[in-house]
């Protein structure tokens, strides 16, 4: 078992009367890429700021590299590289100046990697920060963070302002970090992004961790989506237990539905005698997983069935 870089145990945080974090518990083992998922306002950034020692927790335990982040922020910060969710920069400094400054403040310097990243992200370092768009401001923080040599990389919704091409560049960079054995915490509400890069995910909602595990573990929780075409009418199939969200064609020979993993065998057995012409199954995306947990509507709908 690898050592845990981050350990959070029943962490709580209040802002005045609002409980931003009610119960946050998860670990991040060394060398893993962890996706930290949740809708806006769920507490992702608050959790990250506690990990960085910027906010004082109101309950529970938190350690980063085995140290309390609030009391020993000096010990942990040099080993961390961080990109905040909203990047704001001194308006009259240029992007290049800020990148150099951020590196130097952590005892490092502009290096070959910095130049390479500037090219990859197609970034113009000469412009003053006030003229940068959100995406360009994010690039400043990303280039500074990625060209810094650190053990733990924390990205708070890093791609929300990037175009798809830059997003791809970012994903490749994270995969490089993963290969190099670095530990990464990546918060996001973009599921496809997390799916491509992460070993494990943690889902937070309204200040509580509601699910965590590696991708394979979590996928069984969601349903497969099946599209099927048969010779004979297949309407009877929708009565089968474990089948949801049924749509069929007017001729009753085509259908599109979701099915629980444990009901799959029974459904296939029922399909075979109908003469299957075409069958496609789509693996669950994190989108499905996410909706599964996140829409209250979905939950009550499920319960009603």
């Amino acid at each position: 078992m690898a050592t845990n870089i981050i350990e959070l145990n029943h962490v709580k945080k209040n802002f005045g009367r609002t409980q931003a974090l009610k119960d946050v518990t998860f670990n991040l083992p060394a060398g893993q890429v962890l996706g930290f998922l949740g809708p806006n306002g769920a507490g992702k950034s608050t959790t990250i700021r506690i990990l960085l020692g910027m906010l004082k927790r109101d309950g529970g335990d938190a350690t980063v590299f085995g140290e309390d982040p609030w009391h020993n922020d000096l010990a942990i910060h040099p080993r961390i590289s961080y990109v905040p969710g909203d990047v704001y920069l001194w308006p009259n400094l240029s992007g290049g100046e800020i990148i150099d400054l951020l590196l130097r403040l952590n005892g490092q310097d502009h290096n070959a990697k910095t130049d390479a990243l500037m090219q990859e992200f197609e970034f113009d370092p000469k412009k003053k920060a006030r003229t940068y768009s959100k995406g360009n401001r994010q690039k400043v923080a990303l280039i500074a963070a990625l060209s810094q040599d650190a053990e733990l990389y924390i990205f708070d919704e890093p791609t929300s302002g990037l175009d798809p091409l830059n997003e791809l560049t970012f994903q490749q960079e994270v995969l490089k970090l993963k290969k190099a054995g670095k530990t990464v915490l990546l918060s996001s509400h973009i599921l496809s992004e997390v799916e491509k890069m992460c070993d494990a995910i943690v889902i937070i909602r309204e200040g509580k961790i509601i699910e965590q595990g590696n991708l394979a573990q979590l996928q069984h929780l969601s349903r497969l989506r099946i599209q099927v075409q048969t010779d004979k009418p297949l309407s009877a199939l929708q009565k089968q237990p474990g089948v949801y969200d049924w749509h069929e064609s007017d001729a009753h020979t085509q259908a599109d539905f979701a099915v629980d993993h444990d009901a799959l065998a029974a459904v296939l057995a029922a399909l075979t005698p109908l003469g299957v012409v075409d069958l496609q199954s789509t693996p669950p995306t994190l989108e499905d997983l996410f909706l599964h947990y996140y829409s209250d509507q979905g939950v009550s709908h499920h319960a009603a069935q």
């Binding site: 240029s94 992007g95 290049g96 100046e97 400054l101 130097r104 403040l105 412009k127 003053k128 003229t131």
Partner: peptide, 15 residues
């Protein structure tokens, strides 16, 4: 807006 520096000046390394 005038263009800025591509690299930070040597002294710019502290708060």
């Amino acid at each position: 807006e005038r263009a800025g520096r591509a690299r930070a000046a040597g002294y710019l390394r502290s708060i």
